[in-house]
Design a protein around this nucleic acid. Sequence first.
RNA 1: GGAGGGAUGGCAGAGCGGUUGAAUGCGGCAGUCUUGAAAACUGUUAAGCCCGCAAGGGCUUCGGGGGUUCGAAUCCCUCUCCCUCCGCCA
Length: 422
Amino acid sequence: MLDLKLIRENPEAVQRGLASKGVSLDLQPLIKLDAERRAMLKDVEELKARRNTANNEIARLKKQGKSAETVILEMKTTSQKISEIDQKVGEKAVEIEKKMLMIPNVPLSDVPVAKGAEGNKVVRTWGEPRTFEYKLKDHLDLATGLGWLSMDRGSKITGAGFPVYFGKGAKLERALISFMLDLHVKKHGYTEVWPPSIVNRASMRGTGQLPKMEQDMYKLGDDDQGSGDFFLIPTAEVPITNLLRDELLEEKDLPVKYTGYTPCFRKEAGSYGKDTRGLSRVHQFDKVEMVKFVKPETSGQELEALVRDAEEVLQALELPYRVLLLGTGDMSFAAAKCYDLEAWAPATKKWFEVSSCSVFTDFQARRLNLRYRNAQTQKPEFVHTLNGSGLALARIVLCLLENFQTKDGQVEFPKALQPYLA
RNA sequence: GGAGGGAUGGCAGAGCGGUUGAAUGCGGCAGUCUUGAAAACUGUUAAGCCCGCAAGGGCUUCGGGGGUUCGAAUCCCUCUCCCUCCGCCA
């Protein structure tokens, strides 16, 4: 959520920021609603001030044993008026919030402005795509042939896009999860978290998946209005970031760094037929995520550190990759700045996004009502939140299979992984 | 699933229709003492919103929503969550 005050006082700048994200949204109706609400608020607050003094008056009169009838009579009509205006103010506030929740975050000033993916910039690459003197199988043929993966059986028991792993394929998932968590915990100083994979509506709203992207989420329960409905998480970002929702942290406790594994569930509505072979785009996959809560002034450097933490996994796995700084047109709803890591798949001959590292500035913190007490001013301020995949498994498996297959159709996994596969 | 008890400030915990925004303790901050620290003592310390250049003023908030009342942290209804006991269960 953006700061309403910012929108009120600096609508042009906000409008420009939104436009760079490809969002054409007229802020004027919102600004008008806000002005109307504040005007009414002023009226009702005056009435309430009068009521408060009258209440004291009544109490005093009663204590003295005098009659308070005239004041009470006056207050009857005043209270009536108050509740009428209060209701209108409340209606405006609901409308305002509804609009506010639909407005995306604005990009930071150093994000390249572009309409679509063409604005993305490769900021660095690591490793050389290997060349092979023998013909490569793509990951699907390879893994299916080895008996490690079955998309067909996944379709049978659930539906298209739900992979089933067997034998070494299954163990590979477990190995990657352990390997990544160990790296982030032991080397990068994150605290390991094992959260639920089902969250409530408030959590989905807190990180920004709702209300905008509801059609992309798997939803449980049939209660559309109430708070009792649940969602399967699309990423561990949701449960882990919401862990601290509605809390007031101490500055000395920042940064808070969590890492956790969860399965991820995505409907991927509207992306059928696009890049869907094998493991490249599935409805359920495993992911290790990193989440950070930081002081605002450090969030820039924390983003760079986050990207490096994710890169280190790829380096340890010896997978050639490139780092993309996303342009304004390709960024997600809540992000202010985002780097994607893409690993090379030599048989499919494509770069696959295996990590996305973003800073959300105070956008999520506002929705989450997550603040810290500034040690100097002693005032609560919103934290900045960040998260990044470290990394997303299905596609990493895809890349590992294609990069490390041998001439005889086997797979020789990178050294770092071998202790976990033993 | 059944039966009870509870939810109050950063935390712990009083209050149970009218000077209660809320006692007290802890924590935080400032000071006294001290070579310095600790201890002790003194003072101070909620958040959000609105008006205002500011000084300052006002409103709201005692889990969420609704109701009763001139007036609700306090009474009623409802939802959510937590605790205890019983049942069921990996």
